[in-house]
Design a protein around this nucleic acid. Structure first.
Lengths: 192, 192
DNA sequence: GATAAACGGACGATCTTCTTCCACTTGTAT
DNA sequence: ATACAAGTGGAAGAAGATCGTCCGTTTATC
């Protein structure tokens, strides 16, 4: 099992795959992990057949979405620009969580993850790594005495995920703006 | 149309009606406005027939739930214990919003309300009255200079509703606790 | 004890979504 | 330019879920 032959995708197929993932993320953020496969295909401008050829079932599509999301979060947490105080690093991280591609998607995937995470080793690992990176940042800020100590990383992540959820009755931009504003208030509330 | 004959319900029927409403509120808070009617009936310990006899369709059931919810919120906002500063009145009101019967239900009904509110005059009125009472309290706190001025009542209500949503992966008590804790942080963030 | 109200839950109808399949199209290597 | 393997769209059959009705039985009330 050292190397899968993995025939490279044709150019158009790769393009469609990207479109499917991006479109699915948007759609799922707004409507939950159970949007019809047909809509996901339509939204990406392809037929359902194409969707099913690339992802054999809904599970494998969402799995991919979730994994990407965690990887992005971890990458951001690890890409410390340097010279930041713990508090500033936390602020930076929380603001990134306000981005729809992270926060809104994470919110929408919550129920799905709660149900499927445990059955998938890689996903479990990614979850734990992401949580660890987040907690590390929180602890730094707390150790400095800059952040209130009565809430831990997991709890804060949970909190943020509630606030970051996509509000479908608002436009995409309005929803994103609202989330950003609310997160600033949360940050104010976290300051000692 | 001055008076509807409205034959009074038999005692057992009235009891079942209450159970249905209470159970539906709990179930819908956790799973959204589209839980199967059958489950709602089961949860209340009655058959679907009974549910449908009392509420001819899902719409009329949810309508009732929503109206009750607004009435409770309005009653609380209007029951000022007196002698409170604007800020303290706001804190009191926000904490009430953390109660599952208000906040979690409001969160769950959001999508439904967004779609059906406009077609129902009474519901529209209740929404506006509730919003008005809430905004009034917010403005009092802001006029005192106790609360940040860059967020208005409607926006804060929206914010609170995100935070108050039932977290189904947690037990009812844990979810309620978490909401309460998060709201305290929000309140801290709202303080000037 | 009579009677009207209320009850439960099986059932047929309807609607939704999944997933497969195959005739047709397109990228790519020669 | 050509051939062919890879890719595509979308119709259609299968599977399931949910709705709301109906009626024989139970129960509150007088």
């Amino acid at each position: 099992m050292t190397a899968n032959p993995a025939p490279p995708l044709r150019a158009d197929a790769r393009r469609n795959r990207e479109r499917l993932l991006a479109g699915a993320a948007t759609l799922i953020s707004a409507r939950g992990a159970d949007v019809p496969m047909e809509e996901i295909a339509q939204h990406a401008g392809v037929g359902v057949g194409t969707l099913y050829r690339r992802f054999p079932d809904r599970h494998s599509l969402i799995r991919e979405l979730a994994a990407d999301m965690f990887r992005r979060g971890i990458a951001i947490a690890e890409a410390d620009p340097g010279g930041l105080t713990g508090w500033d690093a936390l602020v930076r991280l929380v603001r990134f969580c306000g981005e729809p591609e992270l926060g809104a998607l994470a919110s929408a995937l919550r129920p799905w993850l709660a149900e499927h995470r445990d059955a998938d080793a890689e996903l479990r690992d990614l979850t734990m790594t992401w949580l660890d990176r987040f907690e590390r940042t929180v602890r730094r800020a707390q150790d400095e005495g800059a952040m209130r100590a009565d809430i831990d990383g997991a709890d804060l992540l949970n909190f943020i995920s509630l606030v970051s959820c996509r509000m479908p009755e608002l436009s995409a931009e309005a929803s994103r703006d609202a989330t950003a504003r609310y997160l600033e208030i949360v940050l104010d509330g976290l300051r000692v």
